[in-house]
Computed example of a mutant assay.
Amino acid sequence: MLTSMTGFAARTGRADGFTWGWELRSVNGKGFDLRFRMPDWLGGLEADLRKQVGASVSRGSVSLNLRIAREAGENAVEINEDALTRVLDAIAQIEDRAGATGVNLTPASASDVMNFRGVMDAPQNREASEELLTELRADIAPLLASFNDMRAAEGASLHAVLTRQLDEIETLTRSAHDMLGQRSADMRANFQAAIARVMESRAEMDEARIAQEIAVLAVKSDVTEEIDRLHSHISAARDLMASGDPVGRKLDFLCQEFNREANTLCSKAQNAGLTEIGLALKVLIDQMREQVQNVE
């Protein structure tokens, strides 16, 4: 079964006087790109998170965000003494400079000082307790499980769509093969006309050259190989989809090969019905490739 690169999961928790919320999301990507957004004082978590997410996801642009805050209560508000000192010193320096130049400033209020970054966020800049880190690490497994459930559900939908598209491609490919008999009469007339044109130049060409030109015309009109390759690609795509492995890149490459054969079929068709089938194949292959871009 296929897995989608698109997924989302969220989870909340609380421990050691803190509440938090996780958000894990991913979108399409050519490779695996994992980005974190979390407070610096929890930086020690990153190695564990990268290992766990990397073991579960092989492709896609993934972002993991953690928002954490101290629970409301008596100790919820603390002053960062170092930050407060820096802010007050900076205010004093600015006021001294302004006074020396004759500029009058409005005095800063306590609420103004509190709003400076870092003054009131000391609780979230302290070293995380082992209890908090343990609880946060324990949250990752269920978060990933929910995330992967969504990706699997999306993958099942992709599997159904791609299976239907492969069925339609197979039907068109069989129709192309069945049309070869009906096409032979038109091809015979076109072939004879081409030979006649070659024979008109016979005086200027030797027998070996004539035989070579006829062989080239025969090769250019034969689409059996293209039809056989389309059948082979269909079988390969089904095998990849059933493997259970991350096969998005391989399916994308296979779509290019599908398109190559459809293009050649159109260029060799020399028949309205076969050309119509070739164009229908190209449309289906483009639609299939759009879906493949979502496969991990």
Rank of each mutant, 00 (worst) to 15 (best):
I210D: 15
E226P: 07
Q165Y: 03
Q212Y: 03
V161A: 09
F191N: 11
L217H: 01
S157A: 13
L254F: 15
R260V: 01
I227S: 02
T163P: 14
E204A: 04
A218M: 07
N263F: 01
A152W: 03
L162F: 08
D186N: 09
A196T: 05
E257Y: 00
I214G: 02
L166N: 08
R164Y: 05
D186V: 14
K250Y: 00
A160C: 09
L254Y: 00
A156H: 06
G181T: 10
R229T: 07
D239E: 07
D149C: 09
D149H: 11
A215V: 02
R151S: 10
V247E: 07
I169M: 12
A196S: 08
K250D: 00
A196P: 14
L217V: 00
A153H: 12
A218E: 05
F147Q: 08
L240F: 06
D186A: 15
E200D: 09
V216P: 14
D245Q: 13
D178W: 02
G155N: 09
L162D: 09
H159C: 09
A237V: 05
R183A: 15
E207R: 12
S235H: 10
E200C: 12
M150L: 13
L180V: 04
L166C: 04
R249N: 15
P246Q: 04
D245E: 10
S235A: 15
E207H: 06
R188L: 15
Q256V: 03
E225R: 10
E257K: 02
E226W: 01
L144T: 11
S157D: 08
E213C: 11
D252N: 15
A152N: 11
E204T: 04
A262P: 00
D239G: 13
E154H: 13
L166M: 02
Q165K: 06
I214W: 01
E257S: 02
S243N: 03
I214C: 01
S243W: 04
M199A: 14
V219N: 14
M187H: 14
I234L: 15
L172I: 09
D206C: 02
A218Q: 06
V223K: 12
A208V: 14
T264N: 02
A196Q: 09
V219M: 03
V223N: 06
A189E: 10
S235M: 09
R188Q: 11
M179T: 13
I195E: 09
A194M: 11
D239S: 11
L251Y: 00
A208Y: 05
A153Q: 15
H231N: 08
N190R: 12
A145Q: 13
E154T: 08
A262R: 03
S232L: 15
P246A: 15
A208P: 10
E204L: 07
Q256C: 00
N148K: 11
K250Q: 02
L144D: 00
L240G: 02
A160G: 07
T163A: 06
I234V: 02
L158Y: 01
G155V: 14
A211D: 05
D167F: 07
T173G: 12
F253T: 01
A196F: 06
Q212E: 03
E154N: 13
R151Q: 04
P246H: 01
G244M: 07
R260P: 00
